[in-house]
Simulated scan of single mutants.
Amino acid sequence: MTAPEDGFAPENWAARDDRTPLIGVRLRTDVDLALKYLTARSEAPAQFALGAAAAYRWATGRAGRAPVTGTAVRLVPDLRVLTAEVDAAVVQLEDPTTEAGLRDFTRGVHDALAWVCGYSDSRI
């Protein structure tokens, strides 16, 4: 996946405010709120919600392994690593042999990380 075509280069996103930590292109507080909101509501299908929650936890550095690839990251992943995980989710979603439960989990990861990376305006 490539950067959004809005004329705003990814390397500039982190420069919005040196005092405000970013996860991808989102404020860390916004990602934390997204996780809190997700766990407080019950509208999303279970596996989808688990995938989104896993993505948010990993993106904020609360999980040691990426939810789709299992890649170990010691710190908060940068935009490049987050985007690679979105790409891995796309590959898995396009695989017709992916089981339904895993597909729902992966869709949750994809949609959450797409928002974190700025590829979508729809927060999960």
Rank of each mutant, 00 (worst) to 15 (best):
E94C: 09
T83H: 07
R65S: 08
R65F: 14
A3T: 08
R26Y: 12
A34F: 08
G7E: 13
A53N: 02
G64R: 06
D18L: 15
V76I: 15
N12H: 12
T106W: 02
D6C: 15
T71Y: 03
V81E: 10
V76A: 10
A112I: 01
D121H: 08
E85I: 07
T106I: 03
R19P: 02
F48G: 02
T71R: 11
G118S: 03
A88D: 10
E85W: 11
D30K: 11
G64M: 09
R28P: 02
M1D: 01
T71Q: 08
R28V: 01
D104E: 15
T97W: 15
T69P: 08
E94F: 14
V90P: 13
A49P: 10
A89I: 11
L33R: 09
V73T: 04
S42Q: 04
L82V: 06
L27A: 06
P4K: 00
P96F: 14
D78R: 00
R16Y: 11
A9N: 05
Q92I: 03
D121L: 12
F8R: 13
L22V: 12
T20I: 10
I124G: 08
Q92K: 13
D111T: 03
R62W: 07
A59S: 15
A112T: 11
T98L: 15
A59Q: 14
R107C: 02
E11P: 03
A100L: 14
A55Q: 12
W58S: 00
F48Y: 09
A52G: 05
E43R: 09
R41V: 12
V76R: 09
S42M: 13
G118M: 02
L50K: 05
L35F: 09
V68L: 04
E43N: 09
L33H: 04
A114Y: 00
T60Q: 11
G7C: 14
A14Q: 12
E85H: 14
T29K: 02
A14H: 10
R41K: 13
S42N: 06
D32P: 04
L22S: 02
S120T: 12
L82Y: 07
S42C: 09
T71I: 04
Y56S: 03
L113Q: 08
F48L: 08
F8A: 03
R57F: 00
R65L: 12
E43Y: 12
Q47E: 07
Y119F: 14
P10L: 14
D95L: 04
Y119K: 05
D18A: 12
E43P: 00
R103E: 02
M1W: 13
L35A: 07
D104F: 15
T83M: 06
E94G: 05
L35G: 05
T2F: 12
F105D: 06
E5N: 10
T39P: 07
L102D: 10
K36H: 06
E11S: 15
V91Q: 05
R16A: 10
A14P: 07
P77V: 06
R74Q: 02
T98Q: 04
G24A: 03
Y37D: 11
E5I: 05
P45K: 01
P21Y: 05
D17E: 11
T2K: 10
A63P: 04
R107G: 06
V86Q: 00
A14L: 12
E43M: 14
T60N: 06
R26V: 12
P10K: 06
L75I: 13
